[in-house]
Nucleic acid binder design. Structure first.
Lengths: 339, 339
DNA sequence: GGTACTTCTACAATCGATTGCGAAAACAGC
DNA sequence: GCTGTTTTCGCAATCGATTGTAGAAGTACC
């Protein structure tokens, strides 16, 4: 199938390709006579012309494309973020380009390289580790970059995240109000900002409530996954820490926690209350429905896209970070502790 | 940031850009003296050269890119497909480009247009409707195209799907063996191959079991969604059809069905057994864990990518379709009917 | 040493658009 | 009718690679 080229449109309209180009681009349209422009339009429509964006990109060195780095699309957390990003970008003519890295730095590097080779105009990155030299380098190189959901240690890279501290605080308040005093925390990976922030917030909020935030009440999971959650929960038991409630660093850890409770013959919420984090899709349908800190992932993605567009439109613009408020979705996994 | 160009590499190596290009491409590397090639390699490495794939695409009119059309990424069905496609493609240097269409033909058309403008080398399409002139046109245009999960009515477009008929048959056999005789089917949208095939298979399999496949035992849902499933299930009750088991066209319909059962005070599986379709992620954790026909989505995606690669490598190759076998994941939503 | 091949490299065109610059045309003013 | 502006358009270069072709360098053989 031979695509129609600008030259053919120009020929049909009886003008030079340069003129056709100007007529077809809104920004330069004023430079050409209205009647001529109309003639070009007509020719383009008749021939079914669609611009070759590759040629355009080569010349303009902009691709109307942004790179979106994800750890793993099959984690239900991310599809809403992707949709948020995509919906906002598409409205202004940009398209996101998604690559999964499975949290492997090598693949992250390869993805960035690939994106660079394709001249993406900017990055939205959900794979940030706290220490992430690659991203620092990208940011330093001048390519617009916005982090979603996770941040890096250095604060000068713009990001859109949920207010983890407030979320943890709300969740603990909820448990406290139900009467829980012995609460443990299944923390996420500590090399990720979410894992770290929630862990720190746990300690802080416990202290604020006048409860023990003894280090042994916190177990670090190796990953944000169900098996890791199960393993961490086993740890809790091995340590022999008394508890009536669990605050999981995210919903997957909470599901792993469920597994251990069941295996040990403990019932939720009768014996143990569990609170998750993220309020991921379908988590309201598990047994028991999980009480979880709702993170507005779609909005996080959308807001990240907006921040990126700001910088794309005005590179001088000072990048800013956004922290979105979280709410608690109270469901059947939390109740008063056994008397 | 100024990217390094081939010309600079050539200069540093003391050769012509054309020679540098040949040295760097494995296919043409034999045409240049081994020592010269090594010199070029070294220069490229020293300068940190990465080829500008936009320029390359413009010249070669291949982009090492394929377009992936999805209805909606947030449907848990699709992420595994995406990963399957991506993993296979990436291994050979292709990247998928994802667009969500939300099942709107307009957006599908726009997406195809956008893909064309970006010169994708092929399409993987998960949005096919039975009647889909757009896709027929794409196929006719010569651009390689593989359908995943869904097919179109005309059989000459290659596709990778699950064996719906066998899946339905297995599911019904399971219910039959448990003792169910009064079974209803919540069918999916009939303009999609999956909805149609499963509906037809239901009638056939019921007859094969010597059971009534009366049309009133089948309700068509308006969409593959929980609300549509709930609505369809309400229909079943309005019709007053006696039943002890429900075969849902997919898991989301089954979840909608759960809602109605609960609202009506019916317990699953005590009063009513429910079987879903797809065995989507986390469906084993809902209450009760859903018995579901497992569809190997990752493999479907991977196989689709392989088919596409076959055609990309040898355009003369006759496109073939693949039907993957399904299995039944038996869980807690099915049991013997009440006595 | 000359002829006939190979092997290697350089030249230049090309992909399809965009854009600075200059010239032609149109127009205004006197 | 002439000069000075403004409008409109065409020319040609350019983005960064790939590739057909031609010529130079090197080798083999008599």
């Amino acid at each position: 199938m031979q695509r129609v080229t600008l030259k053919e449109v120009a020929e049909r309209a009886g003008v030079h390709p340069a003129t056709a180009s100007r007529a077809l681009n809104t920004a330069t349209r004023g430079l050409v006579n209205a009647q001529t422009a109309a003639r070009v339009d007509k020719a383009a429509r008749q021939l079914g012309y669609t611009p070759n964006s590759i040629a355009r990109s080569l010349k303009t060195s902009r691709s109307s494309t942004i790179g979106l780095l994800l750890p793993d699309l099959t984690n239900p957390l991310f599809p809403p973020i992707v949709r948020g990003v995509e919906d906002v970008l598409r409205a202004v003519g940009y398209s996101p380009w998604i690559i999964n890295t499975d949290n492997e730095p090598d693949r992250e590097a390869a993805a960035i390289e690939s994106f660079r080779g394709r001249s993406v105009d900017g990055f939205v990155v959900a794979t940030a580790r706290l220490q992430d030299p690659l991203l620092e380098e990208v940011a330093a190189s001048g390519t617009p970059l916005v982090l979603v959901n996770r941040r890096v240690a250095s604060p000068d890279i713009p990001s859109v995240t949920g207010d983890d501290a407030a979320g943890v605080s709300t969740a603990l308040r909820h448990l406290y109000d139900l009467g829980h005093r012995d609460i443990v925390h299944l923390a996420g990976p500590q090399d990720l900002s979410t894992g770290l922030a929630r862990r720190q917030a746990f300690r802080q909020a416990m202290e604020d409530l006048g409860l023990s935030a003894d280090p042994e009440r916190i177990v670090d999971a190796a990953a944000w996954s169900e098996p890791a959650g199960a393993e961490a929960m086993e740890q809790v038991h091995e340590r022999g820490v008394p508890y009536t409630a669990v605050l999981a660093g995210n919903d997957l850890l909470a599901l792993g926690c469920y597994d251990i409770l069941e295996r040990r013959g403990l019932r939720c919420p009768t014996n143990v209350s569990v609170v998750g984090f993220n309020d991921m899709p379908f988590i309201d349908r598990v047994a028991p429905p999980l009480t979880s800190v709702r993170v507005p992932h779609y909005e996080i993605g959308a807001e990240a896209a907006r921040l990126l567009l700001e910088v794309l439109e005005d590179p001088e613009r000072h990048p800013r970070s956004v922290v979105l408020p979280l709410t608690l979705s109270v469901r059947g996994s939390t109740a008063s502790p056994p008397a």
